[in-house]
Simulated scan of single mutants.
Amino acid sequence: MPRASRFGKKKSIATWDEGDIAPGETRNFRLTVSESYSGMNVRIPIQVRRAKREGPTVFVTAALHGDEINGTGVIRQMIHDGALDLKCGGLILVPVLNLLAFDRHSRYLPDRRDLNRCFPGSLGGSLASRMARRIFDEIVMRSDYGIDLHTAAVRRTNYPNIRADMGNAEVARIAHAFGSELVLNGKGPKGSFRREATSIGCPTIVMEGGEVWKVEPRIVESAMKGVTNVLRELGMLEGETEIPPQQTVLEKTVWLRAERGGFLQFHVAPGEVVVREQAIATNTNLLGVERSVLYAPFDGVVIGMTTLPAVTPGEPVCHLGRLPRGTKAAQLSQDRSEDEGLEERLFEELSTNFMVVERSDETEGMGETGDSE
């Protein structure tokens, strides 16, 4: 696919500043992306795998936000489980893309910028912009496809989902192949890694799953299956892709926000399918007296949630994706439960992170006088 002229021609996976990589060879090295306050080189660890036969080159990156380390655990597991016997092509594995933020357990760089809003970067810009340009030149410009692994932001969790520009045929191809139950359609924010990589001819998707500062077993399992699926779809690995019985492409999502300050009682969990007017969370004071209730505005699925039940007015509580026309909430729930596959196990495990209580009729109308919605 074409590359934008200002970035020059696509680079070879075989030739790096650290040395050449022969067909059939795997090499570990460190790519210099910046310098620290002390003047030491900041070098991110990379593993490059090259098959004996030519084929596509795919990058898999994690910790673009330095506190989102589920993907770091995924790439570590991929490197050590011995399942990456490539038939053709090449693989660029980057367990920590944003090392300066990773070392600080932070989402952001020391200059307070979000690296995932600074692509494709520039040679003479800010710290973040220069790092972005180096990453773009050395990783994206060698790749034909990309997979970037993320989690929810701090004090939130996400049910595993793919973010992808489904209007791009090759992006849609690998998004479907990844095999997540949920796909959020969109180009991504301006300056984001996946949007800018896709724009210059490297179709890239993002997986979102789990929480910051953790390596969660089911999220790792889901991501590893997804990456393997993509490599199989591209003919780089043996085997058939494993796709759930139903994949839902979400065109519209909303964050339901707290109307009052208080302490939340959750009625749903990440990944749950809900119907219009279903109770999502009840807001009470610290003595348990109801103040307000959040209800689903449409049939949808819970993409993500806050993990902190104490809220002030306007704080995000639940990220809800609207089910597309023709998709029945009951059927989606039934397909998942009958399949008894990874999606059902994911839902059950993530549910244990929340105290979820069904809202009964007896609890309705228990608010203080004049204190309910």
Rank of each mutant, 00 (worst) to 15 (best):
residue 1 M to L: 10
residue 2 P to H: 03
residue 6 R to K: 15
residue 8 G to D: 06
residue 10 K to Q: 14
residue 11 K to S: 09
residue 13 I to G: 13
residue 16 W to M: 04
residue 16 W to K: 09
residue 16 W to Y: 15
residue 18 E to F: 06
residue 20 D to F: 09
residue 21 I to A: 02
residue 24 G to C: 08
residue 26 T to R: 02
residue 26 T to Q: 01
residue 41 N to G: 00
residue 44 I to Y: 04
residue 44 I to N: 01
residue 50 R to F: 02
residue 55 G to S: 05
residue 56 P to R: 12
residue 63 A to S: 13
residue 65 H to E: 02
residue 70 N to M: 02
residue 73 G to F: 00
residue 79 I to G: 04
residue 80 H to G: 07
residue 80 H to W: 05
residue 85 D to N: 15
residue 86 L to I: 05
residue 86 L to E: 06
residue 89 G to W: 10
residue 104 R to W: 00
residue 110 P to A: 09
residue 111 D to F: 00
residue 113 R to M: 12
residue 119 F to N: 08
residue 121 G to Q: 01
residue 122 S to L: 03
residue 124 G to F: 10
residue 128 A to S: 09
residue 128 A to F: 00
residue 131 M to P: 02
residue 139 I to Y: 13
residue 142 R to V: 01
residue 144 D to S: 11
residue 147 I to K: 02
residue 148 D to A: 11
residue 150 H to D: 06
residue 169 A to N: 08
residue 172 A to N: 05
residue 173 R to A: 12
residue 174 I to P: 01
residue 175 A to I: 04
residue 175 A to L: 06
residue 176 H to C: 03
residue 177 A to Y: 14
residue 177 A to S: 12
residue 183 V to Y: 01
residue 189 P to F: 07
residue 192 S to I: 03
residue 192 S to N: 05
residue 194 R to M: 08
residue 204 T to P: 03
residue 206 V to R: 13
residue 214 K to C: 06
residue 218 R to L: 14
residue 221 E to G: 00
residue 224 M to C: 00
residue 225 K to N: 12
residue 230 V to S: 11
residue 234 L to N: 14
residue 234 L to G: 13
residue 234 L to W: 12
residue 239 G to T: 09
residue 249 V to P: 04
residue 250 L to E: 07
residue 255 W to D: 04
residue 255 W to G: 02
residue 261 G to P: 12
residue 262 G to K: 05
residue 267 H to D: 05
residue 269 A to V: 06
residue 271 G to Y: 02
residue 277 E to K: 15
residue 280 I to Q: 06
residue 287 L to F: 12
residue 287 L to R: 14
residue 298 F to H: 15
residue 300 G to V: 00
residue 301 V to F: 11
residue 305 M to G: 03
residue 324 P to W: 08
residue 332 L to C: 04
residue 334 Q to L: 07
residue 339 D to L: 10
residue 344 E to N: 13
residue 345 R to N: 12
residue 348 E to V: 11
residue 350 L to A: 06
residue 355 M to S: 07
residue 359 R to A: 05
residue 359 R to L: 04
residue 360 S to C: 02
residue 365 G to A: 05
residue 366 M to H: 14
residue 368 E to A: 12
residue 368 E to L: 09
residue 369 T to R: 13
